[in-house]
Design a protein around this nucleic acid. Structure first.
Lengths: 257, 257
DNA sequence: GCCTATTAAATGTCTGACATTTTGGCAAGC
DNA sequence: GCTTGCCAAAATGTCAGACATTTAATAGGC
């Protein structure tokens, strides 16, 4: 596989790794293909072998490629990629068209996890957490009216969810929030792409977010859990995953013995 | 901070990284402390600067340390560690003295997440999942009697939890299960280190696991959620995080308005 | 035809020198 | 006395070249 078409780059090994990684994520090479040799990369990008080796080390660390002495470098199967690795999350930022199947998977995770997370936040939130939440919510209400401030609105929305992850005061949950951040951005952008949200849906979304904030401020775990589930239900509607009348996500009904 | 007490090592940069990482995870240095310089590491371990640099590159990639030209290397805050990185998961395997603070954090996550996970598993489990669960549970009961089969018992216990993660049939949860696997091993080993477990605690643990399996087989989400919480309560007791009479983990009681 | 020794190619490793960044000290000047 | 500027020391970052090791292919001998 040649290197034709790849742009030149500025900066050190990190920039080179990012460039190559995005080419891989975009499908420039297929799994199993041979990856260019070190020396070819050196000449093509006009960098030292050290830079190339550092960049390739990042690619192997994230499971994108596999290197063996004497044989060369090969692209690994997609299932082997460490999709939750912070490096990959970073490289993914700015990629718009996510796989719909992936969207459903990630949303299903959030739908099961974030209500519990909101419960934790209601139990553990401190003053600084409440301030972050309120700042984000205030920003959301401010930018809700004007459709031209859509990007800002998304940012505040993401900040709101991130603040909940942080308010849990648990290391692992915070990591999850960090790792899922790009996916959450994609989900929110996808949900806002629906036109009908800008007529009546946005107000509804705002009130549901507000109820979460209020429950966390009151330190009411049960209420926070319910409110968070309502927020995600709204998102599901906007994403087209469920309709108001026909929920696809399994409900709480249960066939006890 | 000196290097006294650290064992020598065999093998390449990976082994050195593992050694240093385990020392970090065990709390040998505090966040903010200065990490030994490259040349000191070279002389102490009698390896080339290349090996040291490769090892330190892994430590920075996982967020354990932070390096700046001219200033040296410093230990980062625990909240900055990429606890879900496969490398860290790998380094955690077989570690005996995990930082107690870290144990609490990971356990707190599992205590909040796995009940919901069990609920998902009860909804989505298929035949293959049930077979995995039953095989693991059967192995646990078989190896429970003889204390010399402790390692096998741990393996079956881990397999049981892993099977639950898989049964959720969600991509993100499965990745979580894979990443948390070493931590779960460490937690289980830690819980079994308590002597009293081998008198009456082990039977109790077995019955609680059995209730989870039964609920999942009946596709009863609520029961599965309750049963999973009971399993973790047992683990908490064995870990010494809570006592039977004085739970430290926040309960479900709630001061609604 | 099969096994083996050789060779070529690619990644891995070592070494020494040099570059860059940070920090602290020291001294001149206001 | 305080600031400013410069220089030197220390630590990490980078480079270039040679060499080692692994892998795969290939030619040769039986």
């Amino acid at each position: 596989m040649s290197l034709d078409g790849l742009p030149h780059h500025r900066g050190g090994a990190e920039a080179l790794a990012r460039l190559l990684a995005r080419a891989l994520l975009a499908g420039r090479w297929q799994p199993g293909d041979a990856f260019p040799r070190e020396l070819d990369l050196c000449t093509h990008f006009a960098v030292s072998r050290n830079q190339v080796r550092n960049a390739l080390a990042s690619l192997t660390a994230t499971g994108l490629i596999e290197r063996t002495a004497g044989r060369g470098s090969r692209v690994r199967e997609v299932s082997e990629w460490h999709l939750l690795d912070p490096l990959i999350s970073d490289w993914m930022t700015g990629i718009e068209s996510l796989d719909p199947k992936l969207v459903r998977e990630i949303f299903a995770f959030r739908y099961s996890a974030e209500p519990v997370l909101a419960r934790l936040a209601a139990q553990a939130a401190e003053e600084a957490d409440l301030e972050r939440l309120e700042a984000a919510f205030h920003g959301m209400t401010r930018t809700a009216a004007s459709p031209e401030a859509r990007n800002q609105h998304v940012e505040y929305d993401v900040a709101f969810h991130d603040a909940i992850y942080r308010a849990s005061h648990n290391l692992v949950w915070r990591q999850m929030g960090h790792l899922l951040r790009p996916s959450i951005i994609a989900l929110i952008q996808g949900s806002q792409a629906q036109v009908h949200r800008f007529h009546d849906g946005l107000d509804d979304s705002l009130t549901r977010h507000g109820r979460v904030l209020e429950a966390i401020r009151r330190h009411a775990p049960d209420a926070a859990e319910r409110a968070a589930r309502e927020v995600l239900r709204r998102t599901a509607i906007d994403l087209g995953i469920v309709t108001d009348t026909h929920p696809v996500i399994a409900s709480a009904t249960e066939p006890e013995s």
